[in-house]
């Protein structure tokens, strides 16, 4: 029988986003509020001066939350409902299942993403090249967080464990690193710690692309190299360590 990969992707999007949003609309407010609430705080604290950087931070937060949410969703589908077991024993491959789930997280994030895109169009003034740079950096952050989320989900045996993973990942990737403000706001000894998070590099690229900070070319190149390398590394680790068929 010829398998339709489009159908297999659609299944994940329907189960994890469309049908879920239809039945539990309250979940929309969570994905909507999380990136925007921090933006609001930054806006008030900076008297509006960091609005543009904050919007970019909101995008990064939304990308990271996609992986965090996917980790929780996958854990729930696997451990509580056993849907993943049914999918493992079906013609769907791990890659197609995860790709579908990743798309479903984007669908789930649409309210916040649309709001951020509107705000970006109004308040971030950049060139086409700058917009492409921001888009690529966000895409890498999304891919990174999705791979991380999938890997963590395969190691969690209970949804409560996955909540702990979610809290740790979102704290270290989106709350502590300087994604809503320039890294220069962090005193120097602590700045090096911020560089442990790949979101710091993505934020620096985005802030430079929009003209909020001027990053030297060499530093920018390092930002890209680190971001790409970390994303590739996490993909390789995820591909090797994740357990579709358990050992």
């Amino acid at each position: 029988m010829r398998r339709n990969i489009g159908s297999q992707l659609l299944a994940s999007v329907l189960v994890n986003a469309v049908y879920a949003m239809k039945n539990y609309p309250i979940m929309l407010s969570y994905t909507f509020l999380s990136p925007l609430s921090m933006l609001l705080v930054i806006f008030f604290v900076s008297h509006g001066s960091l609005l543009g950087i904050g919007i970019e931070g909101g995008f990064i937060m939304a990308m990271v939350l996609s992986g965090v949410s996917m980790q929780g969703d996958l854990s729930h589908l696997k451990n509580d409902l056993k849907i993943q077991d049914m999918v493992v024993s079906s013609p769907t491959t791990a890659f197609v299942y995860i790709l579908g789930m990743a798309i479903s997280e984007l669908v789930y994030s649409l309210p916040s993403l649309v709001t951020l895109i509107v705000l970006a169009a109004l308040f971030i003034h950049t060139s086409l090249m700058g917009a492409i740079e921001i888009f690529l950096a966000m895409s890498l952050m999304f891919a990174f967080s999705i791979a991380l989320g999938f890997m963590l989900s395969t190691f969690s045996s209970d949804v409560i464990q996955s909540w702990a993973f979610s809290g740790i990942v979102s704290t270290f990737l989106a709350t502590i690193p300087p994604v809503y403000y320039p890294i220069t706001y962090i005193p120097l000894p602590y700045r090096y710690i911020a560089y442990l998070s790949p979101t710091t590099y993505a934020a620096q690229i985005a802030q430079n692309a929009a003209g909020y900070v001027a990053v030297p070319g060499a530093i920018l190149a390092i930002d890209w190299i680190v971001l790409i390398a970390v994303s590739i590394a996490i993909f390789i680790i995820a591909a090797k360590k994740t357990r579709w068929r358990e050992k």
């Binding site: 159908s7 299944a11 039945n23 077991d85």
Partner: peptide, 24 residues
């Protein structure tokens, strides 16, 4: 295994068949 609480029976079966690669 539990029937996914936020789906209807039709949606449950339909989505599983999509995962198996059937056209809609």
């Amino acid at each position: 295994a539990r029937a996914t609480p936020w789906l209807t029976p039709h949606e449950t079966i339909f989505s599983y068949l999509l995962w198996r690669g059937f056209d809609t």
